[in-house]
């Protein structure tokens, strides 16, 4: 790790101000950034920790919406969303291990947009709204490819608003080493249709499987997608699985998510 300045502000405004310094980076739970720093793969001049901002830590179910503060650890989401949005709570409760879940935050995961992370699939499948210190961004506009998002430099996720679906489920097939999603599928059923978002599979990061959405919107049952197939082109190929295998998993996991949705 190289040396850096460290600040731990207690308000969003102070954090945004601190992040105006050159080569500064926001530090959420640090579950990606800290290992990166330890390997000397990043050299920020300043780290601005968001851990001291209490206003970023909340889980609130209001009407049909679940609001999660950007600084809320996964463990808190797993606990406090269990009743209002159980599929999301289970997703959060199966990220990493207890240490990761107690440090890692929803906002951090979403802002990082790791192509194998769990959260982006839920955000995209629910058509959630990402609220930042300056604006609101829809999920469809937010994710822009592997590790790329609509966030501007110094912009912070303060909140994510999930419209609570009628039924939903997340199926994660774990990569054997990292236990990230080798492929993960989040299915969310709303009054106006079904959305299906896939993580872990595509070289472009999280994406919607629109053919399945159409089929499932007409008939919310695993058999509805039996005739569909996923194009392996553009899927990630690595030690743990070919593109064809990931394409296969997308279909299998979508079917399982539909069957398990509640």
């Amino acid at each position: 790790m190289y040396n850096f300045e460290f600040e731990r502000p207690s308000t969003v405004e102070a954090a945004v101000a601190a992040l105006k310094a050159e080569d500064s980076l926001a530090l959420g739970g640090g579950q990606t950034l800290i290992p990166t720093l330890k390997q000397r793969l990043a050299a920020p001049a300043k780290l601005v920790s968001l851990a001291g901002i209490d206003a970023l830590k909340f889980v609130k179910a209001e009407g049909g919406t679940l609001r999660i503060g950007g600084g809320t650890p996964h463990a808190v989401v797993a606990r406090e969303a269990a009743k209002s949005f159980p599929a999301l709570a289970r997703l959060a409760g199966n990220i990493g291990d207890p240490a990761v879940r107690n440090k890692g935050t929803a906002g951090g995961s979403i802002a990082n947009n790791d192509p194998s992370a769990c959260y982006p699939s839920a955000v995209l499948a629910c058509g959630a709204t990402i609220v930042t210190n300056g604006r609101e961004i829809s999920a469809d506009d937010f994710f822009q490819g592997m590790f790329e998002t609509a966030l501007e430099e110094g912009e912070l996720i303060t909140e994510v608003r999930f419209p609570i679906p009628q039924a939903a489920n997340y199926q994660k097939f774990e990569q054997p080493a990292s236990r990230f999603a080798l492929t993960g599928v989040f299915v969310a059923k709303y009054a106006d249709g079904v959305r299906v978002a896939v993580t872990g599979a595509s070289g472009d990061g999280v994406f919607r499987w629109t053919e399945a959405e159409a089929a499932l919107s007409a008939n919310f049952s695993a058999t509805a997608i039996a005739g569909l197939s996923v194009d392996p082109d553009g899927m990630i190929e690595d030690l743990h699985g070919s593109g064809a295998y990931r394409a296969r998993l997308v279909k299998v996991l979508t079917g399982r998510a539909v069957s398990a949705a509640s």
């Binding site: 054997p176 080493a177 990292s178 690595d238 030690l239 743990h240």
Partner: peptide
């Protein structure tokens, strides 16, 4: 079932951390 030490054709170790070496 899990473990595999893999080099690419240039001799770079692909399974160089616990992110890819499955214990």
């Amino acid at each position: 079932l899990l473990e595999n030490t893999v080099y690419d054709e240039n001799g770079q170790l692909l399974s160089a951390s616990f992110m890819d070496y499955a214990m």
